[in-house]
Design a protein around this nucleic acid. Structure first.
Lengths: 229, 229
DNA sequence: ATGCGTATATTCGTGGGCGAATATAACGAG
DNA sequence: CTCGTTATATTCGCCCACGAATATACGCAT
């Protein structure tokens, strides 16, 4: 029988990447991901962690190195990367970086159904969103600036070549955050421009929009108390 | 007992939005979403469609209006929106548009594990990605331009107020596409800038990057045939 | 010493997403 | 008229994500 197909959960990729550095047990993987703030980019759920590790074992990408021992905490299982797991890690990374994949976002879904709301309300909601987004940009940039100063302690020491300790945190380890900021900025710009076009240019066109909107709403008759102020 | 919590699948929102226009049976909903290109923004799976409709029925947001009849195709069930479903539709839309929600993307996961690849390979992969992205921008803008010309036929006629028929397709109905283009453009800009910084500014810093990379790779010893050209 | 909060470490059950199978009828071609 | 193809319309079951439960041990205060 053939090798089962690669798990779709990116958490499995993180597991491979961590075992690329050194053997670890599951809880330690979780702790390491958190320490390095990778949980902000890769969804981490304990339940899923054990599930994906089992899957990787079945595929032969990962194997048990030793069971239990050390201190005397509850039983633990230490895993290590197999050669085929190393291949998988690289192939997977290549796919991920090379090929953009369509992903469905909540906001895009919302936008695509925009006509169900009256234009005034839509504008007001979008303005709220813009506020939230700019707050988030501000906050993320603060964190980035902070990291650039002193973050080096958040890496486990043995992971860094000696000369590096006590230096500034290499930007390499926060690329994903820079990416996220860039995306939020872009969304903010889009929302602002959209609001501007609706309010200043009657984009939609607004009169058609309102007409469609009320026509549908009327079918659901009478006693809707008016929600817009 | 309380109303079960709102389904998390945005397809359920699309169902509510469609029933806001008029009663429909599931297959018709799917056909309508496709006709309007909403499947590009809202993931549509037949299996999920029936699942979410059942869930909405259980919550009382949607109810059976009539069963079967018409032509004489296989049995069909026509649903309609209830008053509480209308409320739900609006509340949900408000949440969606107002509050940005963190979503995990494949690419962000890949970026966050970038150090597992040697810098040269990373650059080469990112360049590939940039090519794909710009191709996509080109293609999406082509589609948008095309829609702006003649698309009006893709709306079911009765959905549009009479005076509109045979006019240009209102931009209101393609906001989500404009959004997607904006996001892809932003990603492209980010990737180009990232490549530039790595190659021209030794960003990373590249020597540290390579050092970490090879140090880990060496643990997985010997006979890896070198993959980079 | 004893109790309790917290860190360590893993298992399990449920629910939902989705692929694949099922079933019927219209429709055109030979 | 019958055979293959496509459109219509829905059901079923597997698998995976994830919340919640479980279990042990350390450290610190009383």
């Amino acid at each position: 029988m053939l090798k089962p197909s690669r798990p779709s959960n990116p958490l499995a990729l993180a597991v491979l990447a961590l075992l690329f550095e050194r053997p670890m047990h599951p809880y330690e993987m979780a702790a390491t991901l958190k320490e390095r703030h990778k949980e902000e980019s890769i969804k981490l759920r304990y339940g899923s962690l054990y599930t994906v590790i089992d899957a990787l074992v079945k595929r032969g990408d990962v194997m048990v190195r030793a069971t239990s021992r050390a201190g005397n905490r509850p039983e633990r299982t230490v895993y290590e990367l197999t050669p085929s797991g190393l291949d998988e890690l690289r192939d997977w990374m290549r796919d991920l970086l090379r090929h953009p994949t369509k992903e469905f976002t909540q906001f895009e879904a919302g936008l695509s159904l925009l006509p169900v709301l009256p234009p005034e309300e839509a504008v007001s909601l979008l303005r709220d969103r813009a506020l939230h987004l700019s707050g988030k940009v501000w906050q993320m940039e603060g964190q980035l600036a902070e990291l650039a100063q002193h973050e080096i302690g958040a890496m486990t020491k043995q992971d860094l070549p000696a000369p590096l300790a006590r230096q500034k945190f290499p930007p390499l380890f926060v690329v994903e955050s820079e990416f996220r900021v860039a995306m939020v900025r872009a969304e903010l710009a889009f929302v602002n421009e959209l609001v501007r076009r609706i309010t200043e240019e009657g984009w939609g066109p607004v009169d058609v929009w309102r007409e469609i909107q009320t026509k549908c709403a009327d079918q659901h008759e009478t006693k809707e108390q008016p929600t817009r102020q």
